[in-house]
Design a protein around this nucleic acid. Structure first.
Lengths: 359, 359
DNA sequence: CTGAAAGCGCTTACAG
DNA sequence: CTGAAAGCGCTTACAG
């Protein structure tokens, strides 16, 4: 560090090489620990190089490293929404926790892409340029995603893993996802086992993969149980929907409501109580997931927890695996189990189907 | 995009140049819209270049661009603790919100440094090397910081801004901080104005800059008001400290307690009530800051809010200013006002000093 | 075991 | 108005 103050420019590899009395190739090899192979560098030389590096306070330029074909030990993190959102504050947090932790373990730094296009929207391709290329690979997350961009990214052979299942026609996306189907099926199984036959499944109106998976789980449970599924039991409903119909549902003999959205489930429990009904005595209510960062919100509800932190960590691991293999391989996919949380909002129905009517 | 499928390698600038019958320089200029200056490129040429770009599906390599261009439009974010901590979940969040938002506005991406040294601790200098140089500049934050590293970073002329005041001997650190002194003084002023004379100031045992600033504010208020400060009114106390002494304080005639820590303040209110005292009738309680991400926790308390998001955003702005100026200039510093929140835990004391004893 | 050199894909003076 | 060339700071064959 002696004369850095006199120097304006940063030291570069050639400065180190000069000072250590070796070529830049040697500096590069020492720096990258490539001490095996067909090159054997004496201990002494290595020491001289490290000393020169320390003396000069040399730091390799990651951009140059990247360009020269090496890697830069940077993992990209890309989201189509702001990664630190004001509302829904906690949505990304647990994922990031897992991503950061695993990146740290693996010795990678994180590159958060925040640049937007002219219309203030986040894009992988800005003016046709794939900016994620700055990193060795990237983890993508967020509910909204631009399918065309994902397809193009995949076609380019860029190494990325999505946190959440993403299907795009013409491209096999690698992902780490929660096993919503299995977790949903398990809840429905319990309800069927308890004797419920008149279920109502309130799903989100938009069809996302996670929503499809939950619906698939719903259907699987009926098939497995050999119970005929009433197609009209699947009803798309907005989270903020008016709960007027609740009374009608109860009158129609619905004994269990499964709401895909936790918020809606909570409102249903509340509304049912307002109608003088007890949960779960008069109505069982379940939901299909927890609220990130607010487990207490769904503590009462029968539901399952999404392993967000683990998903983040596994996404990083899968990404590294993907990065080590030739482009265009894969896809790499991993399904993580959700944890069932008992809750206290489901129970046996008042009039279980199997039981004959009272004589 | 005609024969991209046949081609294994991506087209590069020279391919475009060849196809358009121009030099790479022209392609670069057209691509970057540098059509003024001392170069004038005919409409026709421009069209040929764009056509070639389209024909080949050419995408400029951002890494090469960075290397040739000198900057990489990357802003570092460094913390000595994990940036997404499990406990104290919300500590960094509002700062990051501001940082991300401002970085986005300014067209920078964020580089989160997560790499650790052999003993799993975060360091700016790993093996003697300043890793922050990966970015064009960096924002540092977190309560704990390694002063030696900050000093060295400063001496190296690296462009960085700390979120929070940091004083290091022999180095003038640039920072954006909350004006704790002014905010504290304002609260103390109010108490003095209400007639309180027997105050108790519970400060954190460790001396950090923010703690010093608050204490300074406490003292300033007395000076300004011309009231003699009782040195023994300043008591270091752990957040989790036993509140046994409370009864003694009340017996000694303390009418107002100012706790630097919100958590402790809340416990004091609670403990006082358990002793049958009313707040603020029998005891005024104030604290000197809010809890990040949980404003409701301190809603009842008389305190002030720390403008965390704004601090993050201003840190980025200051950093960009710093980056534009020659190294070794500065320091760049900014003090941001806190917002007073009324709360309901202070009121006039039972026996205001100025009032003569009842006749 | 070590060095000279090409090359990664751009940008930017600098000549023409 | 346009082209040839140097240079950004590395890595990696390829000679010695």
């Amino acid at each position: 560090m002696e004369n850095l103050n006199r120097l304006t420019r940063k030291p570069r590899q050639s400065d180190v090489a000069k000072r250590a009395g070796v070529s830049t190739a040697i500096v590069s090899l020492v720096l990258n620990g490539r001490l095996e192979g067909n090159v054997r560098i004496s201990q002494q030389t290595q020491e001289r190089v490290w000393q020169a590096i320390r003396d000069l306070g040399y730091v390799p330029n990651p951009v140059a490293r990247s360009l020269a074909g090496g890697q830069n030990r940077l993992l990209g993190v890309f989201t189509y929404e702001a990664i630190f959102p004001l509302e829904q504050h906690d949505f990304f947090y647990p994922f990031l926790l897992g991503i950061e932790h695993e990146a740290e373990s693996q010795g990678y730094d994180l590159l958060l892409f925040t640049q937007t296009d002219a219309s203030k929207r986040r894009k992988v391709f800005l003016e046709g340029v794939n900016r994620l290329q700055l990193a060795d690979g990237a983890v993508l997350l967020g509910q909204y995603s631009d399918r065309d961009e994902l397809a193009r990214l995949q076609q380019e052979g860029f190494a990325f893993v999505y946190v959440g299942r993403r299907e795009v026609s013409g491209a096999e996306i690698s992902y780490v996802a929660a096993d919503y189907a299995a977790a949903t099926a398990e809840i429905i199984n319990r309800l069927l086992d308890l004797g419920h036959r008149r279920l109502l499944y309130l799903k989100v109106p938009q069809t996302s993969e996670s929503s499809q998976d939950r619906e698939a789980g719903y259907r699987q449970a009926f098939v497995k149980r050999g119970v005929k599924l009433d197609e009209s039991s699947i009803v798309p409903l907005e989270e903020e929907a008016d709960l007027q119909p609740l009374e009608g549902w109860l009158a129609r003999g619905i004994t269990a409501i499964i709401s895909e959205r936790p918020g809606l489930a909570l409102r249903i429990v509340e509304a049912a109580r307002k109608l003088g009904k007890q949960v779960p005595r008069d109505l069982s209510v379940a939901t299909l997931g927890d609220v990130a960062g607010a487990p207490h919100l769904t503590a009462e509800l029968t539901t399952f927890c999404i392993p967000r932190q683990e998903m983040g960590a596994e996404a990083v691991r899968l990404l590294l695996k993907r990065m080590e293999s030739p482009p265009q391989t894969g896809p790499y996919r991993l399904l993580l189990p959700c944890t069932q949380t008992p809750g206290s909002t489901i129970g046996p129905p008042r009039h279980p189907k199997p039981r004959p009517t009272s004589q």
